[in-house]
Amino acid sequence: MTQGAKATLLEVIALGPRDAEHAEAGGADRLELVTDMASDGLTPPDSVVEAVLAATDLPVRVMLRDGASFRPRDLATLTDTAKRLADAGAREFVFGFLTEDGAIDVGACRALADELAGLKWTFHRAVDHARDVLAAHAALVDLGCDTVLTAGHASGVAAGADLLRKLAVREAGPRVLVGGGLRAEQIPALREAGLDAFHVGSGVRTAGWDEPVDVAAVRRWAALTA
């Protein structure tokens, strides 16, 4: 890493404390904690959040999402959940919502952000499903998130490469965390474009989501993205 350059980041999806331990042992820098990957990740139970926070020294970003769509089913309840998890020790979160017409739902996001004032959060891949993805990214500049998880396209990193390159050279906005169908062979070109944060889930689970994170696989990704 050159002097003054930002350290690279490898974030690994965790479903529980065993995943957290394995990801940390493999050299991950941060965790995204979720449940129900069949719905692309929902808010985990309180007991799981507490167990993961006790199992690792890594930063843990906890998903706040109560349904498979990118609209909150019950924003008031989700806000209460956010407060409860913050009171239990969670200090970083992941959320993001779209309106019915496919724009960033600024009101819903700010409701959660205000509840979590002072805490870090990621706007998740809802942004890739916006009606105008580039405009959606622009709307995040003043929203308060420090990170946006994006593939640049709803179909994944391969389809979103051009937009990812544009995001890499913009002057303002949250840090771009590349994820969504990310493959190891894509990393060199993404690094060359100036992207330095990467998010993996199935890529570190050689036996699928029913088995824990594979330590050796995390090590390979950590070496690749360093």
Rank of each mutant, 00 (worst) to 15 (best):
S69T: 13
L116R: 02
G179Q: 01
G203M: 07
V200F: 06
A189L: 11
E171G: 12
R18L: 15
R205V: 01
W121V: 01
G26D: 01
V200D: 02
R170N: 11
C145H: 12
V48T: 13
R125Y: 05
C109H: 00
A14D: 09
T8V: 08
L53V: 11
E21Q: 14
A38I: 14
A23R: 00
V34I: 15
G144I: 13
P59W: 00
V60W: 02
A90Y: 10
F97S: 07
T122Q: 00
L224G: 12
L9K: 10
L116F: 01
P17R: 05
L15F: 13
P188D: 11
L182H: 08
L116D: 02
R61P: 10
L116K: 00
G4S: 14
L182E: 10
V48E: 04
G208I: 01
V60H: 01
L167M: 14
A55R: 11
V34P: 09
R65N: 00
P45G: 10
R125N: 03
V127K: 11
L10K: 06
V141D: 14
F123M: 00
A226F: 10
L58H: 02
A207W: 09
A207P: 09
R125P: 02
G118D: 02
A76T: 11
P45C: 08
G107S: 00
D74K: 07
Q3V: 14
V176I: 14
L53K: 09
G16Y: 10
A168F: 03
D80E: 15
A82W: 06
V213E: 11
R84T: 14
I104N: 04
V94D: 03
